[in-house]
């Protein structure tokens, strides 16, 4: 049931990418447990603005768990302590009266901090540009039902395709690896006949871009899968490995 709680926030404040950051504490009274975590931060920012201070900067947009814009490392977990949700869907009912909540940005060399809790995830776009597509132009394609696709494959491709590109996998990984993200895309397209044709090229191009951008490598801890708000499976990583090794052996 709805109730109000008092909490203390310990939030990472950092002016810019080059500047030194530090934690700052804020206390908030009467936060409804029905509000979302970001709505709680809205309340904090309203309070800060009214006190003439700079509001806390954080990324967010759709607030329904699909755009992948929100991030935040809350009490030791990307997207906070709840399961299978993004930060915007995390609700304050997961916290208790008197809690101290530590909020940090994604920390990874691949995601430099822009300000406070906002990080630069453009590396993901660069990885996608390296080969995360099927090379077809608009128009001149066959009828949608021309190539039947086994339901199991289509469903598995869909599961991989649910990745929202939020970067929680990188944030959760002690190696700062983007393998779950890369593998989800490689997997989705490798499972479909349309994407099969370029599968080898895609796996090589996306992986080498990931390496080049300074992400770590996968040691199969599974932290990414555990923290992924969309439950992307690490078996996708196995498929990426397979595609990559096969491609390299053929070269």
């Amino acid at each position: 049931m709805e109730k109000n709680i008092n909490i203390t926030l310990r939030i990472w404040r950092q002016k810019g990418p080059k500047e030194k950051g530090a934690f700052k504490e804020y206390s908030l009274q009467n936060i409804s447990t029905e509000s979302s975590f970001l709505e709680m931060l809205d309340v904090l920012n309203e309070q800060l603005i009214n006190n003439g201070e700079d509001p806390v900067v954080f990324d967010h947009d759709c607030r329904e768990g699909i755009c992948g814009m929100c991030s935040l490392y809350i009490n030791g977990h990307p997207h906070g302590p709840d399961e299978d949700v993004t930060t915007c869907q995390l609700h304050m009912r997961k916290f208790n009266d008197g809690d101290v909540i530590t909020v940090e940005p994604w920390r990874s060399a691949g995601f430099p901090v822009i300000r406070d809790l906002m990080v630069d995830r453009s590396a993901f776009d660069k990885i996608m540009q390296a080969g995360g597509y099927i090379s077809v132009n608009t128009g001149g394609v066959p009828d949608a039902n021309a190539i039947p696709i086994p339901k199991a494959n289509a469903d598995e491709a869909m599961d991989a395709a649910t990745c929202i590109g939020c970067g929680a996998c990188v944030a959760a990984c002690k190696n700062g690896s983007a393998m779950l993200f890369v593998s989800a895309k490689v997997s989705q397209l490798a499972l479909l006949p349309q994407g099969r044709i370029e599968a080898a090229r895609r796996a090589k191009a996306m992986l080498s871009k990931m390496d080049e951008l300074g992400f770590g490598n996968c040691t199969n801890t599974g932290a990414c899968e555990a923290e992924c708000p969309k439950n992307i499976s690490i078996t996708n990583i196995a498929r990426l490995n397979r595609e990559f090794i096969k491609a390299k052996l053929k070269d």
Partner: peptide, 17 residues
């Protein structure tokens, strides 16, 4: 390589899922 990829700042609070 992995330590370098982790970046300079470390999490203050980190919990193993």
């Amino acid at each position: 390589i992995n330590r370098r990829a982790r970046g300079k700042d470390r999490y203050k609070v980190s919990e193993r899922p």
